[in-house]
Amino acid sequence: MTEAIINARSRTPGAAMMARWSNRLRRAGVGTRLLELAGIGLLLVIWQLCHYFIGQFFPAPLDVFDNIAANFWSSRYFEGIGLAPGGYADHVLATTTTVLVGLAIGAVAGVAAGYASALSSVADQIISPLATILGTVPILVASPFLLIWFGPTLVPKLILVGFYSAVVLHVYAMRAVQNVNPAYVAYARTLGADGFGIFREIIVPASLPELFGGLRTALGAAWGFAVIGELLGSEYGVGRVITATWSAYDITSMMAGVVVLGVVAVIADAILAGLRRMLTRWR
């Protein structure tokens, strides 16, 4: 839409210049990738400026990166503030494990529930109210219950990640099936496909792209759920690092924890996006 306005109407000189520049960059073959990199650069500059104006409460990017590098594989400092031996790598690994295992459990349950909800109205009436009610409980309210019931083990964290991703995927899977073009199903029926055949050959592949959308949403959220689980009691995990450095008033390490987790989340998201492209090549 903007292009229309830009081409069509008189504009402020600044905006005109900006548009000319972006057009020139595009024409010169500067890909969006490069602009993305420049964007990250811009973010770092803004971050540095924030540090300049806010001061020590907002550590500079370089200090944060130094902190990550110094404590990545192992950290004397972490042990000093009461963390188990190991560096960011070990904690990220723990969080990643929680996320992946929890997401796997949640995805299977959520997708199964979503398909059931979409294909049977009785199943939908049973599942949907429960999913809505339980899914609305804020995670920080649910987690102390789980902690009391199961103790500081892996179980409450897996339940947290698994349950909330199942709620997300239930909704996505249900919509995905409902959005499958009924003409495909009718066509398959004229070819003599039976109920299960239609499910396997039509509904599953046709709903796959939307399912991946749900999976990406769930994965993005799962990092937060895992961290919450770890904040409340855990030996390893980025959430644990954040609580420990929080009590030590060490803002640099807290920010480092968030950044490390953000980078891992971006990478995981990119891998999932690549996987989707591979599995839905027919699109």
């Binding site: 903007t2 972006s22 602009l35 964007g39 937060g224 961290v227 968030v258 971006v266």
Partner: peptide, 30 residues
């Protein structure tokens, strides 16, 4: 309205959206 800014903001926005929100509470408190 500014295509160049939109392209520049895409990367940072993706990163910020991926940073787990609830892990940032202590930071906001500081």
């Amino acid at each position: 309205h500014f295509p160049l800014f939109r392209a520049l903001a895409a990367g940072p926005l993706h990163f910020l959206r991926m940073c787990p929100l609830l892990a940032m509470i202590p930071l906001f408190q500081f």
